[in-house]
Nucleic acid binder design. Structure first.
Lengths: 124, 124
DNA sequence: TTATAAAGGCGACATCGTCGCATTACTTAG
DNA sequence: CTAAGTAATGCGACGATGTCGCCTTTATAA
């Protein structure tokens, strides 16, 4: 199960790097130059998530968005920062502010999914 | 557009009150005694959300979950508390801990959707 | 009791994410 | 440089989710 380098992987990663934001499968497909199958894009994205290259966020629209792991804590496999989704430009960006919470005794948190929705500065 | 009292509304509200947790449409449909159409349940739930009786949370599975607004700040139309989804019993509960965040200048937050996923105390 | 309009049932639809299978193409051994 | 092995892709299909339109039913007030 060793990964291979393919034009598809490269193209997807380039798109996400250029945008600097979290993107959905359909947004990536629209922006990508070469023609890639929908299922393939999902597989590439999920593989990147498994490898710790990307992390996945689910927004209020129920869709999955994928973003580069820049300052993500890979050792803990957690991405405990807020995400902001602008309802105008429809993009999601990672915010620097960390998620802090307290949970009741006996609870075990394995994943964090925090999305704020509103209007970003360039759209307001 | 004045609301009417119907057996459906009552039944849905009873289920949510008894459970004390956030529930999805299919969970409500399974637990409800009378037979209610899927679309109708969604309409009832969305109406309750419009009226400030319920609030909606989108979990990592992309599904919508609905919970009673108990201590929710109805004046601000925000429900800024964490939610916890247990991956074992598949239920979502509202946590008392509030969501605190700081956003960059010029950003306007209209909605908050924070879900922690893991294992609750009774399931661990 | 009746008019009216909200609510429900039913069918259909679009979207999203995944899976299986056959094919392609990247990688490494030789 | 070539060929074998297998990861990756394309394609079609599927189930699940949430919404919408249209017609019927029913709660409510006159």
């Amino acid at each position: 199960m060793k990964r291979r380098n393919t034009p598809t992987k490269e193209a997807v990663l380039n798109i996400l790097t250029e945008s600097g934001k979290a993107m959905s499968q359909d947004a990536i497909e629209r922006k990508i130059a070469i023609d890639i199958n929908r299922a393939t894009i999902y597989r590439v994205l999920n593989r990147f998530c498994d490898d710790g290259v990307l992390h996945k966020v689910v927004a209020e629209d129920g869709k999955q968005y994928f973003a580069l792991c820049n300052g993500c804590d890979e050792t803990h496999q957690k991405h405990q920062h807020f995400h902001f989704k602008c309802k105008v430009c429809e993009t999601i960006e990672c915010l620097p502010s960390e998620v802090n919470f307290s949970i009741p005794e006996g609870y075990l948190v394995e994943n964090v999914n925090c999305v704020l929705t509103g209007v970003c500065d360039t759209c307001s």
